[in-house]
Write a protein that binds this DNA or RNA. Structure first.
Lengths: 337, 337
DNA sequence: TCTGGCACTCTGTGTTCCCGAGTGCCAAGT
DNA sequence: ACTTGGCACTCGGGAACACAGAGTGCCAGA
């Protein structure tokens, strides 16, 4: 149905259109790529490609432009991920190495990715639910008020202020902290509810009331924060890429955590790339934009996702290479810290 | 030099131009505002205003448009800050009240402000340097590794991972923590360096090495984080306001923490509004944009700043009202938590 | 000092026209 | 059966042009 030459023509169209941003005609193709055939032949192939929905003409008698389906075929079968240059790898390493805490790792990652791809980068904070507890801290603030601090093995810190039902002496707090830590240390977050279920009963009666209050907040934190935090950078790159569709919609989507979550999507395995092209993505305001995303994590567990968002007319091989490389490096950094 | 009527004309020009976004002519002015004089008279006044640089004509035989100088006069002498409606105040309260930690307070504030003003909102995290220490925590992570957690009275939490020069038993860590807390609790951050200066000497010799390591990281944190964290929201509003100047520059500025810092600027007193109009601001990429900013804090100490950024052609009375109101509410929330 | 009148100057818009790039199709060649 | 050159056709986009409308500056009169 699609012989090799037709595929070569499609590849050439995508490559030319990506680099020039103008509909590409049969003559230009014959000139720039040595396909060994004449423009007329190419025209026939183009007609076939259009017939099947891989390319289209913006107007009669203009060149051809790839459709979403065309890009999809290109990504799946006609291109290979382009690895980063040595210089780029070095840049990633040195740039990420300087980060001192999780906030800074994420911040640097998102900027790095934006700069590398010249597009909008999106990074999700390492998921709370898939990580485990490294330490729980209870800090007395006032008479009946404490702050609960939760530190996970990914370096993420959650804090909540709790109003207690009664005055509690500091040593009782300390005691409680010790108990909590001894039974939660290293506990996967998804296991917390069962782990603490019978905890109050194992405490002296006078502490139970307080323990229940604190535990309920702890559990609440785990649930509420299920919707993860996401940051983006490189919005300025949107202005450069003259967007076909209004960039207002894109900016709006970027500020909606929920939408971003869905865009990053779920993955199969770690460091596996997901590409959503134009109308494939689940949000109508983003026709005309593609998302290249990957999971990252330490070891073999995927902790969160990151990716970039740009016009469908993007350089997929390069973008995919950058996303994959950054995802791997961030995973390493997280594992090492 | 400028009699009352000329000022009234200037005010009318600003108001009309802000609401219509079109150069305003003498006839339209005479119709919409009852100035009690004819268009011809207004024309004379306009000529005078233009002479002095308060307004200008985009082209010969177009209406007049205020200059930066004109807006400045308008803000300083011709307008008064418009208080928010009851409904808006209620919305602020309920929206901010639900926040559980500092991150969420800041996040909600910036979104609220963006929505209220329909412009880009910018909020700086409460300054580390001006707040005081509420608690210091040292959490053992591994053999020779601990995490230092710093909690300030504004609810801000800073964490750093520290590699120790030797193995340290947990009880020695606990001891160190107790000592640190007893001498730093409530200590203003700017006082920390002197407060801990002689601390190692007061410890048993075997702990000194470790203490020095930890303290140096602590001090480093205070210094490094001097450049504050800033977040923004509402970038989508930029796309709506058809910017005269390329919005690429604006987006770039928004992602430069340093530039944002300078834009928010320094203030006189708390809740005092700063307005920077067009060319008054220190960044050349932002010709055509104004910044309305205010300090916020708990009690009488200014902890940080917040504000909005929009086209010079903005509704200053309303914007100023919103910024002032939000700054006050955030201050209250911070004081109460 | 204000007002009405008048001539003048622009910008923006709509119209028309034309060029060129690119196509589809067909008939001839391999 | 596929490829190729030729040819007529179609549109989009830019240039040239005209024109209406809004707005001004200025002047003479109240």
């Amino acid at each position: 149905m699609l012989d090799d030459r037709k595929l070569a023509v499609l590849r050439a169209i995508v490559e030319d259109y990506v680099s020039t941003n103008e509909p590409v005609g049969s003559k230009a193709l014959a000139d720039r790529h040595n396909l060994g055939v004449s423009p007329a032949t190419i025209r026939n192939d183009m007609a076939a490609l259009e017939e099947q929905g891989y390319i289209r003409q913006p107007h009669t008698s203009a060149g051809r432009v790839p459709t979403d389906k065309g890009y999809r075929l290109f990504v799946d079968r006609l291109s290979s991920i382009k690895p980063l240059s040595v210089a780029e790898r070095r840049a990633i390493e040195t740039f990420l190495a300087g980060a001192v805490d999780l906030d800074e790792i994420v911040m640097r990652t998102v900027r790095l990715l934006a700069q590398l791809t010249r597009q909008v980068a999106v990074v999700q904070y390492p998921s709370l639910t898939r990580s485990s507890i490294r330490h729980v801290e209870i800090v007395p603030l006032a008479e009946r008020r404490v702050m609960l601090v939760l530190i996970t093995n990914t370096g993420r810190v959650e804090q909540r202020v709790i109003d207690l039902p009664e005055d509690v002496a500091d040593e009782r707090i300390g005691n409680l902290r010790a108990v909590l830590n001894s039974c939660l240390d290293g506990c996967g977050l998804s296991m917390v509810p069962e782990t603490v279920a019978d905890l109050p009963e194992r405490l002296p009666p006078e502490d139970r009331q307080v323990a229940v209050t604190i535990l309920s907040v702890l559990l609440e934190t785990l649930v509420e924060r299920h919707e993860e935090k996401i940051v983006f950078a490189g919005a300025a790159n949107l202005a450069a890429a003259d967007f076909s569709v209004g960039l207002r919609d894109v900016l709006e989507a970027l500020e909606e955590q929920v939408v971003l979550m869905r865009l990053l999507g779920e993955t199969g395995g770690i460091s596996e790339l997901t590409v959503r092209i134009g109308s494939e993505n689940p949000y109508s305001g983003l026709r005309g934009t593609s998302i290249v995303a990957a999971g990252y994590g330490s070891g073999d567990k995927e902790l969160a996702r990151l990716g970039v968002l740009g016009p469908t007319r993007m350089d997929y091989p390069v973008t995919m290479g950058a996303v994959r490389a950054v995802a791997r490096y961030v995973g390493q950094i997280l594992a090492g810290s």
